[in-house]
Write a protein that binds this DNA or RNA. Structure first.
Lengths: 256, 256
DNA sequence: CGTTACCTTGAATCTCCTCAATACACGTGG
DNA sequence: CCACGTGTATTGAGGAGATTCAAGGTAACG
C-alpha cells in the first residue's frame, strides 16, 4: 500500500545540457535526429529540473504547464483509490516522456514520483502545438511514445489479470531489467533497482506479504539475485520462461 | 477463457458513407472538423468493410496495411497467453480507432474481434504520414486517441490490480454504459450489451464462475438489470459508488 | 543507540479457482 | 414437429491461493 510522501524539492536552472550533446543520444537505442530537429528541441527545451528521490513530479487530477523527459534517474507512475490502495502503472526511465495526458486532456490521470534523484528536461506545453505544426517527424514521435505506453500498459494488464504469482514477479523484473539494459544501465548483468518490494507488490496487484513469499519461492530457481538495491540476472532464458512470455522492448525509439 | 473463432468473412465496397454526412459526426461528442479536414478524411478513406459478429479484425503479431475506424457495432481488443488464458484490454465502440500499433511498430500487440456485425471505415496506413504532414490538427487527434487508450488501460489496470470483485464488475459495466450513452446508444437507460459473462470475466481477471457469482451478489443492490443482451441502469449514482470511482469519459473527442 | 524503512516469516482467515452438474435458449437436421 | 448439439448462465463443493494480522530481524542514519 501507499505511503504519503509529498515533498517536492528541486533546483531549476542547473548547468544545462545542450540537446546536441545530450548524453542519452549517444545511445544507439534512440533514433538519430536531424540538425533541424535538434535545433528545434533545443528551442523547445525550457530548462532542466533536478529533483530528489521521493519528489512528486506530476499529480493525478492536476495540470502542469510542463512536459518532461527523464534525462537520468527512475520514476514511477501510479494511480490511487481513496482508501489508499495504489496501482503502479509503469516505471519511467531515462528517455521516457512524462505529462502528455495533461497537455491533451484537462488533467493528468496518474501521479508520477521520483524513485531516485532525477534530472528532467522541461518543455513548455504551449509549444507542443508548434512541434506538430513545424516538425511532423517529432509529432509522429510523440504519437509513437503514446503508443508504446499503451503497449506496456497492455502487457501489464495481461500480467495482472492472467498470470500467476511467480509469472508476475518474473515478468516485471525481467521487463525492467531489459529496459535498463537497453539504456546501458546494466554492467555484468547487474543493475541498481531503486524500488522496494512494496513497489513491486503495487505493480503486480498483490499484497506485500505475498509478493515477498513469491520472491522467496522464485529465488530457488537461481535465475536472479535481488539483494538491497542490486538486481542481477543469472539465467535470462530461464527467467523469461518463468515470466511466461516477455514484453517487447523496441530496439529503436525516439527521444523527445 | 478464450474460444477460437477464426472466421473472417466480410464484404468490401458496400454502399459508401461520405465523411461529410457521416452519421457519427451528427453526435455532439465528436469535435467538428473543418471543410479541409473533412475533404482530407474523404480522400484518406479507402472504403468500408462490413464484417459479421465473431470476425477477427486485427491479429496480434501480424501487421495490417489498414487502419480502421468503427462506424457501427462493437468489438473487443484482447491479448492471449499460449495456454489460452485471455485478457480483454478494452472494448471498441463506434468512433474508436483500430490498428495504430501496427502502423507505428512492426506489428499489432493485441487482437481485435467483432462482437456484433460491424462496419469499419478503412484507411491505408501509408497515407498516415500524409495526415501528419498536411493536417496537424488531425495528427494531434491521432495522438489524442492514443492517449485516451492509455487512460482507459490505466483505469482497467487499477481495476484489475486493486479493486475487489463487486467493484470490478460495477466499474466495467458502468464504464461501458457511459461510453454507450455518449454515443447515443442508450434509450430509457437501456442498451444492448453484445458480450457474455465470459468476456466480462476476461476483462476483470476473474474466472467465469466467480464473475457469475459476483454478478448474482451485485444484482441484489438493484442498481442494474442485465438479462440476455439488454443492460439497464436503475440507480446510476449507487452503481458508481459500488464501482469505487468512475472512469472519465471525455465529453468531446476527435473522429478520425 | 534509538528510530525508521524495509524485509521476512508464521498462523488464521477469506477470496477465488477448479471441477462438476444442471438449466435454458436457440438453431439445425431428421 | 422433435431430437440433438452448442453456447451461455447458474449453482454447489472442495481446495488452492492470497490476505490480514502479528511479530521479529536487519541495515542505514542521525
Amino acid at each position: 500500500m501507499a505511503r504519503s510522501n509529498n515533498k517536492t524539492r528541486g533546483n531549476a536552472s542547473p548547468p544545462q545540457t545542450p540537446c546536441k550533446s545530450c548524453p542519452l543520444r549517444q545511445n544507439k537505442a534512440f533514433r538519430r535526429f536531424s540538425a533541424e530537429e535538434l535545433e528545434f528541441m533545443q528551442s523547445f527545451k525550457g530548462g532542466e529540473l533536478v529533483l530528489d528521490a521521493g519528489s512528486t513530479i506530476l499529480v493525478e487530477g492536476t495540470n502542469s504547464p510542463h512536459l518532461y523527459t527523464v534525462l537520468s534517474g527512475w520514476a514511477i507512475k501510479h494511480k490511487s483509490l481513496e482508501d489508499g490502495r495504489r496501482q503502479v502503472l509503469n516505471f519511467a526511465l531515462p528517455g521516457d516522456f512524462l505529462g502528455l495526458q495533461g497537455s491533451i486532456f484537462e488533467s493528468m490521470h496518474h501521479t508520477v514520483e521520483a524513485l531516485t534523484g532525477v534530472v528532467l528536461c522541461v518543455f513548455p506545453r504551449e509549444k507542443l502545438w508548434t512541434l506538430y505544426e513545424k516538425h511532423q517527424g517529432l509529432a509522429f514521435d510523440v504519437t509513437w511514445l503514446a503508443a508504446r505506453e499503451e503497449t506496456i500498459l497492455g502487457d501489464y494488464l495481461v500480467t495482472v489479470g492472467q498470470r500467476r504469482a511467480t509469472e508476475r514477479v518474473a515478468f516485471v523484473l525481467l521487463h525492467l531489467f531489459r529496459r535498463a539494459r537497453q539504456l546501458e544501465l546494466v554492467r555484468a548483468n547487474k543493475v541498481a533497482f531503486p524500488f522496494t518490494q512494496e513497489h513491486l507488490a503495487d505493480t503486480i496487484g498483490f499484497s506485500l506479504v505475498h509478493t515477498n513469499k513469491t520472491l522467496k519461492q522464485l529465488r530457488r530457481t537461481a535465475t536472479f539475485k535481488w539483494t538491497g538495491t542490486e538486481f542481477e540476472v543469472l539465467d535470462e532464458k530461464k527467467l523469461a520462461e518463468l515470466a511466461g512470455e516477455s514484453a517487447s522492448v523496441p530496439s529503436v525509439r525516439p527521444l523527445i
